[in-house]
Write a protein that binds this DNA or RNA. Structure first.
Lengths: 248, 248
DNA sequence: ATATTATTGTGTAAAATAAACACATTATTT
DNA sequence: AAATAATGTGTTTATTTTACACAATAATAT
């Protein structure tokens, strides 16, 4: 919040005290604030989203994003990290704020404004410590309806991801540390929902100079194994100025 | 907000009632929510931002963004439009949400989470109905310090604008309805803070097929006058698929 | 009137990037 | 040993971006 002034008193400023503002902030005009996380994963060559069956009896056959109220003494972003930790058992996940949804009627329990965050996780890691029986991965293209306005929130985050992944190297958060170029391409094809040219795809990523050849090969594939690479963040930072895209 | 479940009770769901959630939403965990608007203008070939001298006695020598608390019965976006209307007297301004700032200590009056909006206005129109003596246009490159964390909010919105203007035709909101290509280029140079090649600039905009030649020329310029154009939103919608950029 | 000034309006060539496309190689399976 | 299925690699073409110069025009100064 910034400066408020009564419309009837234009041109007269310095009329408010901090104390007056404090009481305004502490008593009236408050709303419930929540965070909803759209957590993407990548498994079996499909883009997935982590959902939970609604806690609420009335809505128990609907799926929902993972969210919670922001606590009064908690930074907004910390709130999102807390939800991720509670739900996945994982720390240090990729997390970015996408949009805030604040229509009056969006939540049946009253005025709840929700800040949407997008998170990307490595499904393999998550599998080992799945915490909650009601949490499930859903194919993104199977999402037809969600609780409240969560479909709208999901759509916004999915579009955001499709755009963002073409400008920033965030897809690696969805893959194991070591991956083949085929896996990387499958990921991009799943996110963008279109086929890409294999040779041009390889050329493009190699030219960006942030993939490190691990000198290893895929195991247990029923065909010639591909080389394994890892994403090197330092090399990314060093080279990103020289690329063509805005700031991939 | 979405689904909350006590950490101590994993795997057990459908445990909450809507009523229970309602009381949670209505009593505890509430915060003050505000909207802060970064209002850009373009005048004398410079990008400007509309600021107000702080209302608060304690901070009366600091400048501030234009904001207010969100009312309990007001859509978030409507809150932003209300602020714009109050401060500029103008309706139907370009407005887009940019980011939400929710650190615990960001506001001295208590916990205030703020949603930042970016707005673009035609300064010529605004001049005619300036409402408030404490409102002033500031060159964006003169902004060194603002109230609270408003500099951070401003920076985020300015970066957002620089990126957004290269993907969407929103710069026209900053210009008069009729403008010369030189004015348009000056605008882009001011926003991006760099020189552009005049011939390539013209070629690019003409190729996008949304500028309509008004058959008029500039008046009162001390040199050969340029032709005047207007931005045609319908033509933009019709042709935007055919361009090179992501979705300029 | 004339010259001067400042800016408009226009096209092409070179460079960089993106797109299209085929075949030999290598593990695995049969 | 043959069949399978995917890897690894380069070139050609099309498209996009960049760099760059000069004649035309209206206003101003002389």
């Amino acid at each position: 919040m910034a400066e408020t002034k009564t419309k009837s008193n234009p041109g007269q400023s310095h009329s408010k005290t901090l104390k007056g503002l404090q009481s305004e902030v502490q008593s009236i005009n408050r709303v419930a604030l929540s965070v909803d996380c759209v957590i993407f994963g990548f498994d079996e060559n499909k883009l997935k989203v982590l959902l939970i069956r609604s806690d609420l009896k009335k809505y128990q056959n609907k799926f929902s994003l993972l969210g919670d109220l922001v606590k009064p003494e908690e930074d907004l972003e910390d709130s999102a990290y807390r939800i991720l930790k509670q739900r996945t058992g994982m720390d240090d996940l990729y997390l970015e704020q996408v949009h805030t949804f604040g229509e009056v009627g969006r939540h049946p329990a009253g005025r709840v404004v929700s800040v949407a965050y997008c998170s990307l996780i490595n499904v393999q890691h998550h599998r080992l410590k799945t915490i909650d029986n009601d949490l499930h991965w859903h194919d993104v293209d199977s999402i037809k309806e969600l609780l409240f306005d969560h479909k709208k929130i999901f759509d916004a985050c999915y579009k955001w991801l499709q755009k963002r992944v073409q400008e920033h190297p965030l897809g690696f958060s969805l893959l194991p540390n070591k991956f083949s170029l085929r896996e990387l391409q499958n990921l991009y094809e799943a996110i963008l929902n279109k086929k890409l040219d294999r040779r041009n795809f390889r050329k493009k990523f190699f030219s960006m100079n942030f993939l490190v050849d691990m000198g290893e090969e895929e195991q247990n594939v029923p065909h010639r194994p591909g080389r394994l690479y890892k994403f090197d963040y330092e090399k990314y930072e060093k080279n990103k100025k020289t690329w063509s895209g805005i700031d991939f």
